[in-house]
Lab assay of single mutants.
Amino acid sequence: KTSLNPNDLGPLPPGWEERIHLDGRTFYIDHNSKITQWEDPRLQNPAITGP
């Protein structure tokens, strides 16, 4: 199984920011909706992941 390299996905969507949590995990901030999440928003785009 090959793992996706986030660098291959291009930039984050407008308004998003990638940060490192105190425990070392990466999380994502959506400044548009004022939410945070652990999942990379680029992986949730149907145009990238397919049907």
Rank of each mutant, 00 (worst) to 15 (best):
P11F: 04
G15C: 04
T26C: 12
W16S: 04
Q44F: 08
P11Y: 02
F27K: 13
E18H: 02
N5F: 10
S3G: 05
P13G: 03
P41Q: 00
E39F: 04
D30Q: 04
R25Y: 02
L4W: 06
K1H: 01
S3H: 08
D30H: 15
R25N: 09
P13Y: 13
T36Q: 05
T49D: 11
R42Y: 00
K34A: 09
D23L: 03
D30A: 03
P13A: 03
K34T: 08
W16T: 03
L22R: 14
T2D: 15
Q37E: 01
P41L: 01
R42T: 01
R19I: 09
N5S: 10
H31S: 11
D8L: 06
N32D: 10
I35V: 09
P14Y: 12
D40F: 03
D30F: 03
T2F: 15
G24E: 01
P41R: 01
T36H: 14
P46V: 13
P51L: 03
N32I: 14
T26Q: 06
T2H: 05
G15N: 13
W38F: 14
F27H: 09
T2P: 05
D40N: 03
T26R: 13
P6F: 10
L43H: 10
L43W: 06
L4C: 07
W38P: 08
G10V: 09
P14I: 07
L12N: 03
N7F: 11
E17V: 04
I29N: 05
P11G: 08
P6W: 09
G50M: 06
F27P: 05
P41S: 01
P6M: 15
T49Q: 08
T26V: 11
G15R: 03
R19K: 08
H31V: 11
D30M: 01
R19C: 10
P11V: 08
P14K: 12
R19W: 05
D30V: 00
N5L: 08
L43D: 10
P41H: 00
D8C: 14
P14T: 10
K34R: 10
P51W: 00
N32F: 05
S3L: 05
D23M: 03
W16I: 02
L4P: 06
T36D: 03
A47R: 13
Y28G: 04
L22D: 14
G24P: 00
G24S: 03
G50V: 12
G50D: 14
G15W: 03
T49V: 08
E39S: 11
P11N: 09
I29F: 14
T49S: 11
P46I: 09
N7P: 12
F27D: 07
G50P: 08
G15T: 03
E18M: 04
P46H: 11
R19N: 05
P6N: 15
I48E: 09
P14E: 14
T49A: 10
T26K: 14
P51V: 02
S3K: 07
D30K: 05
S3A: 04
N5V: 11
T49K: 07
T2S: 13
S33Q: 08
E18Y: 04
H31T: 14
K34P: 00
Q37L: 01
R19M: 07
I29S: 06
P13R: 01
H21Q: 13
T36R: 06
E17D: 02
I48W: 00
N45K: 14
I20D: 06
R19E: 08
L22M: 14
G24F: 00
I20F: 07
K1Q: 01
P14V: 10
L22K: 15
T2W: 01
P14A: 14
P51C: 07
L22C: 08
R42A: 02
D23T: 13
S33R: 14
H21D: 15
L4A: 08
R25E: 08
K1S: 08
K1C: 01
L43T: 12
Q37N: 03
L4R: 07
H31Q: 08
I20K: 15
Y28R: 03
T26I: 10
P6R: 14
L43E: 12
N45R: 13
I20A: 12
P11Q: 11
L4V: 10
Q37H: 14
L43P: 11
F27V: 08
S3Q: 04
K1G: 00
K1P: 01
W16P: 05
S33E: 12
P41W: 00
S33T: 14
P46F: 07
D8V: 10
K1R: 10
L22T: 15
D40K: 02
G24R: 03
N7Q: 10
E18W: 00
H21Y: 10
L43M: 09
L43G: 11
T26G: 03
H31D: 02
I35F: 09
E17W: 00
Q44Y: 06
E17Y: 00
T2E: 11
H21K: 09
P11T: 10
L12Q: 01
R42F: 00
T26S: 11
I48T: 14
P14W: 04
W38Q: 11
P41D: 00
H31N: 15
E17C: 04
H31P: 05
G10R: 07
R42L: 01
N5P: 03
P13K: 03
D23C: 10
P13C: 01
L4E: 10
N32V: 12
P14M: 07
N45M: 09
E17A: 01
I35C: 13
T26P: 12
E18R: 09
L4F: 13
N5K: 07
D40Y: 03
T26H: 15
P14N: 05
L22V: 15
N7R: 12
N32L: 09
Q44P: 10
N45V: 11
G10M: 03
G50R: 09
N45W: 06
Q44H: 09
H21V: 06
G24M: 00
F27A: 11
S3M: 08
D30R: 03
L12T: 04
W16R: 04
I20G: 06
T49C: 07
E17L: 00
Q37R: 02
R25C: 05
H21T: 15
P41N: 00
K34F: 03
D40M: 02
K1V: 00
G50N: 08
D23S: 13
P46D: 13
L4Y: 11
R42Q: 02
A47D: 15
H21S: 15
D8N: 14
T26F: 06
S33D: 07
F27I: 09
I20C: 15
D8A: 10
P41G: 01
L12V: 02
S3F: 15
R25W: 01
L4I: 10
E17I: 04
W16Q: 05
N45D: 08
I35Y: 06
G24L: 00
P6A: 15
P6C: 14
N32G: 11
G50A: 14
W38H: 10
Y28E: 04
R19Y: 08
L43K: 12
R19A: 06
I20W: 07
E39L: 06
A47E: 13
I20E: 14
T49I: 08
R19S: 10
T2A: 08
P41F: 00
I48M: 09
T2V: 05
P14G: 08
I29L: 09
H31F: 03
R42S: 02
T36K: 09
